[in-house]
């Protein structure tokens, strides 16, 4: 699994698609925005599965009372070679609203776990990616 993170509108999906197909977009990939829907279709695909807007899916599952922490891990068991794309959402003033706080905390914690599992983590800014996994000092 690969994890790609960055701010809003930084060109994360385009960056990923460009990297996969060398300019020929969507040639061998399939972009989904939800996990746990159309599971069968996702498992049988020969294409690389890209989950875009992962943070939005996490937000929806929290509001529906789901457990995105477990659901994403089950998804990864079935799709070990997928690419996950998520916004970074924790870099702001801590919100007064309890749901907003929970969303930011849980998204952050999920991304930490995903980054641990990922073979590669890239951070995209202005369309440019930096590989940040395995830097150590």
């Amino acid at each position: 699994m690969k994890l790609v993170i960055g701010g809003y509108a930084q060109g994360k999906l385009d960056y990923v698609l460009e990297k996969i197909s060398g300019g020929d977009m969507c040639a061998r990939s399939k972009v989904v925005q939800e996990i746990g829907k159309n599971e069968q279709e996702v498992i049988n695909t020969e294409e690389i599965v890209i989950v875009n807007h992962l943070h939005s899916w996490i937000r929806t599952r929290i509001s529906e009372g789901g457990c995105p922490e477990e659901e994403i891990m089950l998804f990864l068991d079935k799709n070990p070679d997928c690419i996950l794309i998520s916004d970074e959402v924790g870099n702001g003033i801590v919100p007064l609203d309890a749901f907003e706080r929970e969303y930011r905390e849980r998204t952050g914690r999920i991304l930490i776990e995903l980054a641990k599992k990922a073979e590669e983590v890239e951070r995209v800014i202005c369309g440019i990616g930096h590989r940040i996994k395995e830097r150590s000092f």
């Binding site: 993170i5 970074e88 952050g108 930490i112 980054a115 983590v121 951070r123 940040i132 830097r135 000092f137």
Partner: peptide, 8 residues
Amino acid sequence: VVVGIPIM
């Protein structure tokens, strides 16, 4: 620190 990864 970004998604648990330290960047110097």
